[in-house]
Every structure is written in structure tokens, then in C-alpha cells.
Design a protein around this nucleic acid. Structure first.
Length: 274
DNA sequence: AGTGTATCCTGCAGGC
DNA sequence: TGCCTGCAGGATACAC
């Protein structure tokens, strides 16, 4: 489910509720979302406070005092709900998987219908290594059109697959890959290394614009996504192609098509993407 | 280095 | 109403 804008929306909504909270215990309802045994997670988090909250790609990163990091990958249907002392979980939290209890009675609930999400606690150096294996942040300063073009060059994979590969660029998922390609007038199946300098520049701009606009709208809710405040994201109303098979292209009024490759649906307009 | 396929799960929409 | 199929925002492992 959640891609960069959804993770960013969660982090922004969560920060004021979580930073400063000290973990007293961890309730594990579904251990299969944990990367290590429940006791490992308890040992590493109990008695420690969260001191910073950030995002890396699609991951929510909760930094603990002492340098360890609680890493949450939301998978397809993962959500994080902060709970005030005495506050019951929202009715939307139908599939609780892990609950971090805080001193004073508050909590952070990880809820995940399909349980493709992952929760793990890493030491600082392990986290650095993990983060280093991810590609650049598309909204970061270092992510220039020139660097993007360089990354694309030499790759024979379809550009949509290239965008989804977290080792090449971090945070883009199927919705925003399709939306950015449409905005840049580039067919999702184009060979990444065949993009001209001009096309790479257009796609670079499109990726950044789509992600920024989606963050501004609070992410995209197809079905499950909720921000930390429990609200759905509004970008679904601004989607041009994703999930709109057979509907008219908002730009040229051609009929949007769906094709499948790399195991996932790609949506595009045959009229204005080549 | 690519691609296709399968896997992990649950829920929902659509066809009959 | 029920049953079946296909589909889903992700990540990974495998064979070719």
C-alpha cells in the first residue's frame, strides 16, 4: 500500500505524538510481522524513549535514545495509530499486530490486515548499512536530473520496473510510478536506458512533482491507507491513470489501458505516452 | 542482468 | 445467498 507520500504523511502525523514516549512493553499479536523473535524486540525497546521520527523511502524510522532504530515497513496494508492514555484503538484498527505500550498509558499500534508489513529493531550501524542499500531519496537535494539519467542509462529493464526497484530509487511504488510516467509522456514499458536526456529530465520533474503533490494531499487512499490521524489521503482524486482502465485520459481523452508486466498492473494512455 | 512465477496474507468486487 | 475467480499500494526467492 503505502509509498513515499503515505509514509511521509504518517511520519508527520505521528511525530508530535511519539517523540519523547518511553516504551514499557510490547504486545505481539502476530509475530509474523516481526523480523526477529518477540523477546529480541522487547529487549531492545523496553525502557527506551523515541527521540526522532523520520522516513526513508517507504519506511517509517523511529529513532530510539541510544541510537537503535525501530524500522517499520508498512507493506500493503500496514498502519500506525498513536493512542493517548486510556484511548481505545480506532474502529479502523481491525487487525492489530504489534502494540508498543508507553509509560503513562499511551501506545503505538501497528495494524496490518495482510501482514506483509515488517517491524524490526536495528542497531545504528545495521541501520546505516540497510539505508545505504536503498537508492537516493527522490525529494532529496542530491537527486538531480543528471544523476537520475545516469542511473537509468545502461539499464535494459522497463522504466516502470526501474522506478519500483528500491535499490535504484527509494520510495516509489506502483501508483506513483504510473502517475509520473503519464505526466512525463513516457510509456511504462520503455527501456530505462533508452530514455533521452530530455525524457529523463521530464521524468525527474514528474516524479518529484507527483510525490510532492501527493504529500500535500495527505497521500493516496485506495482502500486501506489512513494517516496517523485516521484520515484517508486525498490524492486518489488527482490520479490520472492509476486504477482508471478504460476511462478517458484527462490530458488527451484517449482510453486508458492496463497491461501487466513484472507481475503488476501498469496503467497508461496509448494516446500520449510513448 | 533481465523476466516470469510463486510466496507470504486477507478482503473485496464481480460473475454466475 | 453462496461460490468462485481475480485483484490489490510490497518485498523476496527461485529458476531460466
Amino acid at each position: 500500500m503505502p509509498e513515499l507520500p503515505e509514509a511521509e504523511t504518517i511520519v508527520r502525523g505521528l511525530a508530535s505524538r511519539i517523540v519523547g514516549a518511553t516504551v514499557t512493553d510490547v504486545d505481539v499479536v502476530h509475530a509474523d510481522v516481526l523480523a526477529s523473535p518477540p523477546d529480541d524486540l522487547r529487549r531492545r525497546t523496553r525502557g527506551r524513549a523515541f527521540e526522532r521520527l523520520e522516513r526513508r523511502g517507504k519506511n517509517v524510522v523511529l529513532g530510539l535514545v541510544g541510537g537503535d532504530v525501530l524500522l517499520v515497513n508498512l507493506g500493503m496494508t500496514g498502519r500506525l495509530f498513536p493512542l493517548a492514555p486510556g484511548e481505545p484503538p480506532p474502529t479502523a484498527a481491525t487487525h492489530p499486530a504489534v502494540r508498543f505500550r508507553f509509560r503513562g498509558g499511551g501506545a503505538l499500534l501497528f495494524d496490518d490486515v495482510r501482514r506483509f508489513g515488517r517491524v524490526e529493531c536495528l542497531g545504528a550501524s545495521d541501520w546505516r548499512r540497510r539505508s545505504g542499500a536503498l537508492g537516493p531519496e527522490p525529494l532529496g537535494r542530491g537527486f538531480t536530473a543528471a544523476r537520475f539519467h545516469l542511473g537509468l542509462s545502461g539499464s535494459r529493464s522497463p522504466v516502470r520496473s526501474w522506478l519500483l526497484d528500491q535499490r535504484r530509487i527509494a520510495g516509489i511504488g506502483n501508483i506513483y510510478a504510473n502517475e509520473a510516467l503519464h505526466r512525463a509522456h513516457i510509456h511504462p514499458r520503455r527501456v530505462a536506458g533508452s530514455l533521452s536526456h530530455e525524457e529523463a529530465r521530464r521524468l525527474h520533474r514528474a516524479v518529484r512533482a507527483v510525490l510532492r503533490e501527493a504529500i500535500r494531499a495527505g497521500g493516496t487512499t485506495i482502500r486501506d491507507f489512513r494517516g496517523a490521524d485516521g484520515l484517508p489521503g486525498g490524492f486518489v482524486h488527482q490520479l490520472a491513470v492509476y486504477g482508471r482502465e478504460s476511462q478517458p485520459c484527462p490530458r488527451c481523452h484517449g482510453s486508458i489501458r492496463r497491461i501487466v508486466f513484472g507481475g503488476r498492473s501498469a496503467f497508461f494512455c496509448p494516446g500520449c505516452q510513448d
